[in-house]
Amino acid sequence: LEEYALTIAKKMKYINVGTIEFLVDENEGIYFLEMNTRLQVEHGVTEGITGIDLVEWQFRITFGEILPIRPHHVE
């Protein structure tokens, strides 16, 4: 799913925080659902798990800063 999400973001030339959502069926079929170019209400869960302040990162990206880690380094 990460590869699909990154492919979508790259094709759209999207360079900020957001979410790309998929549905997965019982046969592991993957279906694109939607892309949100904003933080979702659940971003607090992501911040708690990763220790990353996503709002701060949105501002850093807006001001052209290079983030200290890449998406594939987030666990």
Rank of each mutant, 00 (worst) to 15 (best):
L1F: 10
H43G: 01
K11Y: 10
E21D: 15
E3D: 14
P68S: 09
I69P: 01
G18P: 00
E26K: 11
F59Q: 08
I30W: 07
I20M: 06
P71Y: 02
E34K: 04
G44A: 07
E2G: 14
E42F: 11
H72F: 12
L39C: 03
E56M: 11
T19V: 07
K11M: 12
P68T: 03
N36V: 10
E65F: 03
E47F: 10
L33T: 06
L54R: 02
W57A: 07
L54E: 01
H73Y: 12
G51D: 05
G48T: 03
V24F: 01
E42H: 05
P71C: 05
Y14S: 06
H43E: 05
V45S: 07
N27E: 14
T62K: 01
I66S: 13
V45A: 01
E75Y: 12
T37D: 08
Y14E: 12
L67K: 08
N36W: 11
E26C: 04
M12L: 15
A9N: 05
E3V: 11
G44T: 08
R70E: 15
H43L: 14
F22C: 02
K13W: 00
M12A: 15
I8Q: 03
E2C: 12
F63M: 15
F22A: 01
V74N: 04
V24A: 10
I52A: 01
T62L: 15
Y31A: 02
R38N: 03
R38W: 08
G18N: 04
I61V: 13
D53R: 09
E56Y: 11
I8C: 06
L33G: 05
H73S: 13
P68Y: 06
E42T: 02
Y14H: 04
T19K: 01
Y14C: 06
Q58N: 00
G64W: 01
A5Q: 07
F63L: 15
I49H: 04
Q58P: 03
I66W: 07
G18L: 10
I61M: 12
E3A: 14
E56W: 08
L54T: 02
I8G: 04
T37V: 08
P68E: 15
T62M: 15
E28P: 02
I61Y: 03
Y14D: 10
I30S: 05
F59S: 05
E34V: 07
K10F: 00
L33D: 09
G44F: 10
E34D: 10
Y14R: 07
T62Y: 10
E3I: 10
R70S: 14
V24D: 09
T50L: 05
V74D: 07
I20V: 14
T50F: 09
T19I: 07
H43M: 13
E42M: 12
I15W: 07
L54A: 02
E21Q: 12
G29V: 08
T7F: 09
K11C: 10
H73E: 15
V24R: 06
L54N: 00
Y31D: 06
E26I: 08
I61K: 05
N16M: 11
K10R: 15
E21R: 04
Y4I: 11
Q58R: 05
E47P: 00
F22S: 04
L1C: 11
H73G: 06
I8Y: 08
E47A: 06
H73I: 04
G29I: 07
I52R: 03
H73L: 13
E34P: 03
